[in-house]
Design a protein around this nucleic acid. Sequence first.
DNA 1: CAAGAATCTAAGCAATGATTAGAAGGCAAT
DNA 2: ATTGCCTTCTAATCATTGCTTAGATTCTTG
Lengths: 215, 215
Amino acid sequence: MAAEPAERRPYHREDLRRDLLQAADAHVREHGHHGLSVRTLAHAVGVSPGAPYHHFKDRRELLLAVALDGYARLGEAAALAISAGASPAQNLLELCLSFIDFAQANPRLLELMYESELTSPAPDPALLHHQQAGRHALQVHLEAALPTLSEEERTLRLLSLWSTVYGFASLRNKHLIDPFEPTGSSADAVTRGTMALAVRAALSPAPLFEEHARE
Amino acid sequence: MAAEPAERRPYHREDLRRDLLQAADAHVREHGHHGLSVRTLAHAVGVSPGAPYHHFKDRRELLLAVALDGYARLGEAAALAISAGASPAQNLLELCLSFIDFAQANPRLLELMYESELTSPAPDPALLHHQQAGRHALQVHLEAALPTLSEEERTLRLLSLWSTVYGFASLRNKHLIDPFEPTGSSADAVTRGTMALAVRAALSPAPLFEEHARE
DNA sequence: CAAGAATCTAAGCAATGATTAGAAGGCAAT
DNA sequence: ATTGCCTTCTAATCATTGCTTAGATTCTTG
């Protein structure tokens, strides 16, 4: 929490904004964003309590910047997950797993990234864009995998899959999935199985919708 | 926000705790729990700033009580959704839709009900129980519908379905599903379709898991 | 009716978010 | 270089908030 109080204080420092973001990110990772105080953050970086307000209008804007940083890293992870040679089904699964892995590796950060308080009162355009990116990323590969399906069917499958991924990650981070042992590196068997199931269902060639309409 | 400042103040009032909870619930419904202040709440109810602390140890405990109230009402809605005569599939779908409906009707309250800040530092047993109830409710009917499936397969389907429901409700409340017109009463076509699809996939008799293992 | 317990008020403390005035340093044009 | 302006930072300050304490008021129970 309390980083080094900064060796020296050259009044105008190199890049206070960067240092603040770094310290804020560290705090969010360890304790979540709820307890984060601008003052203690300033003190940790070795600067007066009012200094951060020259780089961020608000506490909210500071947290917003941390969140946007998180989205950037999430985007990188997602980009690494897909590969040009793989099938759409594989890419879809890897994309889902990359999100879950990111959520497991950065639970507090992900919580901030989807924190509703961040968007109020004005929904930041950049934030909204990144929040929608998750769905869009899946959409592309789903369309590639199921070009023949009706637009409606595909939308439903997309929403279902994205909801599953986001919901699983959220519930898992809330420790509501299971007494998981923290397996460590990558997704465990249950996670992989659930995601594989979800992708399979989303890609099932038979129209799942409008079939079981009896009764 | 500001309720009537209470007509008179008989020092010992009827039930301050109830009044506080009611006012807190109203505030959460309108503005969410983030901005809720114990002091303004006390003032709205017409009582001194320290009074609430005789009924709630903490601001957190007050919010916890509001959340538990929410879970009680969610439980009632869920109980109304299932009917003894219906098929497990129908009950499953209605259960899912009742959760989505509740989420749509009380978005801020649901956000509080799954707020992580609520559980820290000590995860309240009652809260945890209610949070797990969503999954358990689905579990019962899923077991009734798919008694022949392996335990593993059923667990994966359960987790997938519950994740879909929770994820869809969350994303929808974050306005991340679509530009929805607030249709008003019940779930709209996209919601019903997505949930029907998810239930269908969860109940698909063919083993979705461990089948497509080629490649 | 008296004693004790519960509920409430009043006052106050420490922490926090945010603003303001002005000092300290950087930067560009002359 | 010196001048003038802008940016960055400090110091001081304010309002709000969560929460505690001491004591007043009321209820309850023996």
